[in-house]
Simulated assay, not measured.
Amino acid sequence: MKTEVKTPKAFGYRFPAEFEPHLATWLSWPHKEASWPGKIDSIFPAYAEFIQLLTEGEEVHINVGNQTMENFALKHLEQAKADMDQVFFHQFSTNDAWCRDHGPAFLVNEQAEHRKALVKWNYNAWGGKYPPFDLDNEIPYHIARYRNIPTFSPGIIMEGGSIEVNGKGTLMTTEACLLNPNRNPHLSKSEIEFYLQEYYGVENILWLKDGIVGDDTDGHIDDLTRFVNADTVVTVVEDDSSDENYEELKENVELLEKMTLETGKSLNIVELPMPKAIIFEDMRLPASYANFYIANTSVIVPTFRDRNDDKALSILQSCFPDRKVVGVDSWDLIWGLGSFHCLSQQEPV
């Protein structure tokens, strides 16, 4: 491994936690019907409501393929009463909508000449599952040119939904995703840790094992366990011992209880319920309240017309006393196998 290459960490950059202040949220407008077969028209009201909530506290930058798509988006956002002074369209073409994974990782260093930089990871649509993905793979370069900020390109596959940070030096991920041979088969676990440390600017790597059933990303952390502050995580649990998720989620809690932060301190662990299984066309969908997005003024949580919706919102409100926690119906959106966190990428101030 060529350690002489200057990495973001060597330049003093770090990847801020999502709960730190944002300048903006980046999105890629949904347009791929194959991601929501037979349902794509039904997702736009919830998606537009998500954007309306974002505009209450930060800019929203939306990648659209052409003027027709921009006009279509504009119609939905005006109907949702989004603050259009906060919305910026960019005609950067995409294959799909999952900006968490194909978007850049924005870095900050208060002392650097360029206060902000980004990491352009390679993207292969979760192990080559959904080609083509060539347009998505270029999105970080478009954004870097637009923002005129330096770009680091480590040359390996990585997705934003596969990692979670506390902003102080700890990063959490899953073995099921990052050690999957469909990502970086040439890299060992210790080599992957090197890239995580050097390109996200962290020291402490925490490994969980598997994600939730139905997750086509091979176990992204953002459906599972999330930092809500520097020393506290929320993690999903399943009460029904007959459910497919029960054992894996129980094991994840046991692993979290043994983990320590970069300070050596144990994690504070808050348990979040799971909704009942959502089956559509004989397929278990990855419905999880952990796929919330932390915006400047709100926390936007997917809800599933489930008896646990209110309980999940109440637990998350207790974790974010200075933000309003808002549930937005994700019943149709989850047919795309992701929700609000998967669709969004934060840009720090």
Rank of each mutant, 00 (worst) to 15 (best):
V5A: 13
V5L: 12
Y13C: 09
R14D: 10
E18T: 08
L23M: 07
T25A: 15
T25H: 10
S28T: 12
W29V: 03
A34N: 09
W36P: 04
P37Y: 06
D41I: 14
S42V: 03
A48E: 07
A48P: 06
E49H: 14
L53I: 14
L54P: 01
T68W: 12
T68I: 12
M69I: 09
H76T: 04
L77A: 01
L77F: 03
L77V: 08
L77K: 05
A80Q: 12
K81L: 14
K81A: 14
A82D: 08
D83M: 11
M84D: 08
F89W: 13
H90A: 05
S93Y: 10
N95Q: 05
W98V: 02
C99G: 11
D101C: 07
G103A: 04
L107P: 09
V108K: 09
E113I: 14
R115L: 14
K120A: 13
N122A: 15
K129W: 04
Y130P: 00
I139N: 01
Y141W: 10
A144G: 11
S153F: 12
P154H: 03
I157S: 05
E159R: 07
G161K: 13
G167N: 12
K168E: 15
T173P: 03
T174G: 06
L178A: 08
R183A: 00
S190D: 14
V202E: 07
E203P: 13
E203V: 10
L208M: 09
G211T: 05
G214T: 00
D218C: 00
D222A: 03
V228C: 07
T232Y: 01
E247N: 15
E251K: 15
L256M: 05
E257A: 15
T260Y: 07
L267C: 08
N268Y: 04
N268L: 08
E271R: 15
D282C: 01
R284G: 06
A287H: 06
S288Y: 02
S288G: 06
A290T: 06
N296E: 11
V301D: 02
P302H: 01
F304G: 00
D306Y: 03
D306C: 05
R307Y: 09
L313N: 02
L313P: 00
S314E: 13
S314L: 14
Q317R: 02
F320T: 05
W335C: 09
L337Y: 13
L337S: 04
G338T: 06
C342G: 04
S344C: 14
S344Q: 03
Q345A: 07
E347C: 03
P348Q: 13
V349P: 06
